[in-house]
Amino acid sequence: MTTFKLIINGKTLKGEITIEAVDAAEAEKIFKQYANDNGIDGEWTYDDATKTFTVTE
Rank of each mutant, 00 (worst) to 15 (best):
N36L: 12
Q33T: 13
A49M: 08
L6F: 11
I7Q: 06
T50M: 07
G39P: 05
D41Q: 07
G10C: 03
I30R: 10
I17H: 14
A25T: 09
Y34N: 07
A49G: 04
K51A: 11
T50G: 07
F31K: 00
T3H: 13
Y46S: 14
A27K: 00
G10R: 07
E26N: 09
I17L: 06
A24I: 09
T3Y: 01
T12V: 14
Y34M: 11
K32Q: 11
T54C: 02
A35H: 01
E57S: 05
N38T: 12
K51T: 10
I40C: 01
A27E: 00
T3C: 01
I8H: 05
K29R: 09
T12E: 13
K51W: 09
M1D: 10
T18A: 04
A49D: 07
A49R: 14
A25M: 10
M1T: 04
L13F: 09
Q33E: 15
G39E: 15
N38H: 08
T54M: 14
K32T: 10
G10H: 03
M1P: 14
N38C: 02
A25W: 05
T52K: 11
G42H: 00
G15N: 06
Y46G: 04
A27C: 01
K5M: 04
K14D: 10
K5Y: 12
D23C: 02
N38V: 14
N9C: 03
K14A: 09
I7K: 06
G42Q: 00
N36F: 13
M1S: 14
T52A: 10
A24F: 09
F4I: 05
G39D: 04
I17T: 04
A35S: 07
K14C: 01
T56Q: 12
W44G: 01
E43T: 09
N38P: 01
A21M: 15
E43V: 12
T45C: 02
V22L: 12
I19D: 07
A24Q: 04
T45P: 00
F31G: 15
F31M: 04
T3A: 07
N9M: 14
V22I: 11
I30T: 11
T52S: 05
E16L: 01
G15H: 05
K29Y: 15
D47I: 11
N38D: 08
I7D: 04
E20G: 12
K5H: 04
L6Y: 04
W44Q: 11
V22D: 05
F31I: 07
A24V: 11
F4Y: 09
T12A: 04
T54W: 14
I8Y: 15
T56E: 13
K11L: 11
K51D: 03
F31H: 03
E16V: 03
N9E: 09
A21S: 10
N38L: 13
N9S: 08
Q33V: 05
E57R: 01
A25H: 14
T56C: 02
A49T: 10
G39S: 14
T3I: 13
E28I: 11
F4G: 00
T18E: 14
W44C: 02
K32I: 06
E57W: 03
G39H: 11
K5N: 10
F53C: 01
T50H: 11
N38F: 14
I40P: 02
T50A: 10
K32N: 11
Y46A: 03
K29P: 12
E43G: 09
K51M: 06
I7V: 12
L6S: 09
A49Y: 11
T52Y: 12
I30N: 15
G15Y: 11
N9A: 04
A27M: 01
T3D: 07
G15D: 10
I19C: 02
F31P: 00
L6G: 15
T2N: 15
A25G: 04
T2F: 08
I17N: 13
I40H: 13
N9V: 11
T54E: 08
L6T: 02
T52D: 14
N9Q: 11
T45G: 04
G10T: 12
A25Q: 12
E28K: 05
T45I: 08
T3E: 12
G15S: 06
A27N: 00
A24W: 15
E20S: 13
N36K: 12
I8A: 04
F31R: 00
G42C: 00
G39V: 14
V55R: 00
K11Q: 06
T12K: 07
E26P: 14
F53T: 09
N38Y: 05
T54D: 14
G42Y: 00
Y34I: 03
I17S: 03
Y46P: 00
F4M: 02
Y46W: 05
Y46L: 07
V55A: 14
T52I: 06
E28R: 09
A21I: 10
T52R: 15
E16Y: 02
D37T: 12
K11E: 05
N36T: 10
D48T: 14
I7S: 11
G15F: 05
D23M: 13
A21Y: 14
D47N: 11
I30S: 14
A21D: 11
A21N: 14
E16R: 02
D37C: 01
K29N: 13
A21C: 04
I19Q: 02
V55T: 06
I8Q: 03
D41K: 15
V22S: 10
E28W: 10
D41A: 03
N38E: 04
E20L: 09
V55M: 09
I8N: 04
G15T: 14
T3K: 14
V55I: 05
I40A: 05
Q33I: 06
T45H: 13
K29W: 09
Y34D: 08
G39C: 04
E20I: 14
E57V: 02
D23R: 12
G15K: 09
T50E: 08
Y34Q: 07
F31T: 05
Y34T: 07
D41R: 09
G10K: 10
I7Y: 09
I17G: 03
A21H: 10
A35P: 01
E43H: 09
N36H: 07
I19K: 02
A49P: 14
K29S: 12
T56F: 08
I40G: 01
T18Y: 13
A25V: 10
W44Y: 13
D23F: 04
T56V: 06
F53K: 00
A24T: 11
I7E: 02
F4T: 01
K5F: 04
Y34F: 15
E16W: 07
T2V: 13
K11F: 13
V22K: 08
T3W: 05
K14F: 06
T12M: 13
Y34H: 05
D47S: 10
E26W: 11
D48G: 08
L6D: 00
F4E: 00
A35T: 04
Q33R: 05
T2Y: 11
G10M: 14
N36V: 10
K14V: 15
A49V: 07
W44N: 00
T54N: 04
E28H: 06
Y34K: 08
A35C: 03
T54Y: 03
V55F: 04
V22R: 07
K51G: 15
L13Q: 11
I17V: 05
T52E: 14
D41L: 05
D41G: 10
K32A: 08
V55L: 02
T45K: 13
A24S: 06
K51Y: 06
K5S: 12
E26Y: 13
G10V: 11
E20Q: 10
G39I: 14
D23P: 03
A24C: 02
A49W: 10
E16I: 01
G42V: 00
T3F: 02
T2S: 07
T56L: 14
D48M: 10
T3V: 15
F53V: 08
A25I: 15
G42S: 00
V22N: 12
D48R: 09
G15P: 15
F53P: 00
A27Y: 00
D48Y: 11
K29M: 07
I19Y: 02
Y46H: 10
K11D: 03
E57H: 03
L13N: 08
T54V: 05
E28M: 05
D41T: 07
D37Q: 07
A25R: 03
E26G: 11
I19P: 00
Q33W: 10
K5W: 01
T12L: 11
A27I: 02
I30P: 06
G15L: 11
G15E: 12
Y34A: 08
